[in-house]
Each structure stands twice: as structure tokens, then as C-alpha cells.
Design a protein around this nucleic acid. Sequence first.
DNA 1: TCAGTATGTATACCGGGTATATATGTGTCA
DNA 2: TGACACATATATACCCGGTATACATACTGA
Lengths: 177, 177
Amino acid sequence: MSVRNSLLALLATRSAHGYALKSAFEHCTAGAWPLNVGQVYTTLARLARDGLVRSTQPQDHDTDRHPWEITPAGRDALADWYRRPIDPRPPRDELAIKVLLALALESGAVDQVLQTQRTATMQRLQEYTLTKRDTDPHRQLAVLLLLDAQILKAQAELDWLDLCAARIREHRAGSAS
Amino acid sequence: MSVRNSLLALLATRSAHGYALKSAFEHCTAGAWPLNVGQVYTTLARLARDGLVRSTQPQDHDTDRHPWEITPAGRDALADWYRRPIDPRPPRDELAIKVLLALALESGAVDQVLQTQRTATMQRLQEYTLTKRDTDPHRQLAVLLLLDAQILKAQAELDWLDLCAARIREHRAGSAS
DNA sequence: TCAGTATGTATACCGGGTATATATGTGTCA
DNA sequence: TGACACATATATACCCGGTATACATACTGA
């Protein structure tokens, strides 16, 4: 959904070709999520099918390439996206699933899973922190915000891993008695 | 990927039918992510194609339904999953994308986006906290761990939203001067 | 006995995402 | 000048995750 809505947001400021949309998306998001061009075209086709976007009419002796523009219905859909919070239903959380399955099926393996993940996440956190130190908060605001997000998520993950380990310890102590 | 690996993990403890795998997955993950049965069968078919799983040989006068079992290659793949941390490449973060696009394209809209999201996330956090209060840490360990994860993520999201607002304020103050 | 629910399998369909084929223009460097 | 890399530009094939649905059978309780 995010690419779909992003394309609407970009087209709301000015009409553009598919390729330009890819570039603009990557520019706005500071290159954090490279966008496959193919996806732009298929997404545009779906948006057109749903009446949120249309290709501008070719001028008389124009080439047969003409940019896409947003429709009124598209502006409505975009306004909805801005107005509503992001869908709160959590997508499948691979780490949580892995931990819960290990706990349920091979409870000996769960400590190893927690430990491995902790090391890897700690490593990532350090990389983010180093990168952040070299980020100019005036000229690279988007990069900085993204790093903030990744750092906060990594820290939350570490907290959760520690909490898991503690709760599982307690649980075992409780069961043993 | 998480369903694929989960099926391997479940089959590693005992062979089972597709439907039983669905039930077992939901049981292990405390019902947090209902699993569509259809996905179980298509995923099993892919696992079989890749040689990680096979359907057990039917006994002589057996019905033509027989459970799936994991292969040695499947056990290797599962061990890999347990051994390696979850892929650190962050998937597209819809909230971050929305904030960055709003900031870049309609910087007036970003405050509204941040505020709306903050309210919604705060609400969710309160719901999680209420649910957690009614969770027995001995009999519902999995539920508790999941709630911990959701709470920590929601708090991290709130922190990020506040940080965004602050950084954007600063940035505007800096640009204005 | 009939309706509802659990068990069980299969398939169609959609959307997100990647890879790839295929052009054309543009700049640059030996 | 010709070769080569690279950006611009579009289209399509393919895979995977995920949902909906059709279709059975068996149990179970009103």
C-alpha cells in the first residue's frame, strides 16, 4: 500500500512519467528503500484501473509518451491516507513468531535464538549510531529521521529480547518448583 | 518467509496434515496471526518442490490422504533459520514513508500526520496495557510476550513521532533565520 | 434429523516485489 | 569517431505472501 499511496502523493504535486516517480520517491525517502521501476508501472496500471490516476491526453503531434496525472478521486484517496493513521493491525512479526515457536517446540533453542538476535541487533544499532554522527541535521533531515526510527526500533527490539529472556527464566523457575 | 519456516519448525516435531499445521501455528502464536489454510497448502507445495518436505508414502490400503514430513534438507534449513538472526534489512516502513513524503511534498501536512498517528498509537498502547493486566504470566506466557512486543513497539513509535515533531520544529526555526 | 462446527484439501485471484528485455539519448574517453 | 557506460523510459514475466472460496466429510448437540 505504501508505494501506491506514495505515487498518489507525488502525482498530487505534479504529473510525471513512471521513471520520474521512481526517482522522486527515492529522493524523498533518502534512498532508504530503492524502488523497482517495474513496480511503479504495475502500480500505476492498478491506480488507473481504479480511476485514481490517468495518463494525460496526448497533444496533436505529440509522441505517444505522456505523463500520468492524478484525478479528483485520486486526491480524495490521498487526503484519506493523510487523514487516517497507519493501519494498526500488526503484520506478521517474524522475530516474535520465531521466538514463540522455539519456545513452544524446542524450548532449549529459544535461549540461543534470543542471544543470536541480540548480538545482531546490537551490531546494527552501533552502525546506525555511527552513521548518525556524520549526518547534518540541517541538510539531511530525512536521513536523520530515518536513522532515529531505526535506532528506536532496534532499541525496542533489544528491550524485548531481554524481557523475553527474563520472563522465560521466571517461568522456568515457577514450573520447576 | 515466516510461515514457510514455521511450517518446517512444526513438522520437525511431528508429521502432520495441512490443517493440523494451521491449528498448531495459531496455537503456538497465541492466535495473534490467524493463518489462512490456503496459504498452508501452497506453502507446503513450495516446500515440497524445494525438497524440504515430502508427503509420507501411503500405506497399502490407506486412504489417499497422508501427512507431510520434513526431509533432512528441511531440517538443515530449519537449523539455519534458528541459527541466523532475522534478516536485518528493514522492510518498507509505511509510517516513515508517509511522514517523509508529507515533509517533502506538503510540509504543512506533516504536523497533522504526526498528531493523528500519535493519538491512534496512544490509544492502541492503552488497549495493550489493559489486556496485559488480565494476562496470567504463568498460563499465558506467549500472550504476555506478544503484548510486551506490541507495547514496546508502540512506545518506540510514540518516541519517534515526538522526535520528528521536535526536529522539524528546529529545522524550521533554523531555515527561517 | 438437521444445523452448526471442526477437519480436511484444493484452487482462483490479487497485490507487492524482483528481474529482465528492450529501447533511446547523452556524455566521455581512448 | 567509435565504443562504452549510464540515465531515462516502458513493459512484461515471474515468484511469493495472503485472502476468499468451493468442496468435501465427520462429529455433535438441539
